[in-house]
């Protein structure tokens, strides 16, 4: 089995889903002939034809809106937003329609759609191309927010998202689009939604993260292990709805928790996890819950972006501070 990158795993999952279900469509700007700006849809037009793969006019609200219409008619569109920074005009459709259609019609019309977007910094992209606003989506009722962090999970979670009968916002950390690679079996097996993945077990501290920060966190955990500290690393994967049980169980035996995300600190999804720990896990905690996050600034242009995004070093500093509590 060959090792593939995350973006190739996305492509593999799309092809598999289109193969197994003819109602699965791919829509977006430049997803057809060009195969997507990151090549996530490369080859799909040639393989499945122009009745399944659509280059749309350049209009993001429209992309989400036609997906809602197609979804209500029983299609399963997988719609690409070129960069998360261009997703904002479509939030109206997600919040006012996609997340509400099943509820407001009492199940008469449903919205089995997937809205994909690459997100996050670290690839020296132009302005508006590096943002992380997953927390805005996580606040919207009726949808799922899913973020893979490795090629295998991208493959499995995207298949699960496409097969899911409800709308999914699927955010792909583009900093890890090309590397690291791993072996992915293209056997059509979906990964579970609504569930965290424990990537590394440890008894001393729980590190909770998602997206591209998983790599930084695993690197920090490796360093800590060399210093005799065993960190448990949890990839949240589905932010909404949140699998808090896995996080609480981990914190019950470690007593410490640091949450790491690239998005701005205030109002970030780490705050929700910290609040639930305060609500349900306080008696297990032997130290404050610490968040390592982006600053409450505008995402800087590439010359300074390395200083914005949490690094393994910044994670280690937070962990050391937390370990100082007896």
């Amino acid at each position: 089995m060959a090792e593939i990158a995350l973006v190739e795993a996305v492509q593999l999952a799309l092809a598999r889903a289109m193969e197994e279900d003819e109602t699965v469509l791919v829509l977006g700007e430049d997803v057809g002939v060009n195969g997507g700006v990151f090549r996530a849809t490369d080859g799909l037009l040639a393989r499945f034809g122009d009745k399944r793969v659509f280059d749309t006019p350049l209009a993001e609200a429209l992309l989400a809106g036609i997906s809602v219409g197609l979804g209500a008619q029983g299609f399963r569109p997988v719609t690409e937003f070129q960069f998360m920074g261009f997703f904002y005009p479509a939030i109206d459709q997600v919040a006012n329609h996609a997340g509400r259609l099943r509820n407001r019609t009492r199940g008469r019309l449903t919205c089995p759609i997937v809205l994909r977007a690459p997100f996050g910094g670290g690839i020296h992209a132009p302005e508006h191309h590096s943002e992380s606003f997953e927390a805005m989506f996580a606040h919207i009722p009726g949808i799922r927010v899913v973020i893979p962090s490795s090629p295998a999970r991208a493959y499995g979670l995207l298949l699960a998202a496409i097969r899911d009968p409800d709308p999914v916002v699927f955010l792909e950390p583009k900093r890890v689009y090309r590397a690291p690679k791993e072996e992915v079996a293209d056997d059509g097996t979906a990964a579970p939604l609504d569930c965290c993945f424990t990537l590394r077990e440890g008894n001393d501290i729980t590190l909770v993260t998602w997206g591209a920060m998983v790599q930084e966190t695993l690197a920090a955990a490796e360093t800590l292990s060399g210093q005799g500290v065993e960190a448990e690393v949890i990839d949240v994967a589905t932010l909404k709805p949140l699998d808090m049980a896995t996080i609480l169980t981990s914190v019950e035996h470690t007593g410490r928790c640091v949450i790491i995300h690239e998005a701005p600190l205030s109002g970030g999804f780490g705050g929700e996890i910290a609040a639930r720990l305060a609500d349900r896990g306080l008696v297990s905690l032997t130290a404050p819950v610490k968040r390592v996050a982006g600053f409450d600034t505008v995402m800087p242009l590439p010359r300074l972006e390395e200083h914005y995004m949490p690094s393994a070093r910044r994670i280690l500093a937070a962990v050391r501070e937390i370990l100082e509590y007896a």
Binding site: L25, K51, G65, S67, V68, G69, L70, A72, F75
Partner: peptide, 25 residues
């Protein structure tokens, strides 16, 4: 298959395009 009332003005125009695309496909 008719859509429910749409309060956010004009946001259903894209739904109509999506429904029409489904018919066309």
């Amino acid at each position: 298959e008719d859509f429910p009332i749409c309060v956010p003005v004009g946001t259903h125009a894209a739904h109509a395009a999506g429904v029409a695309l489904a018919f066309q496909l």
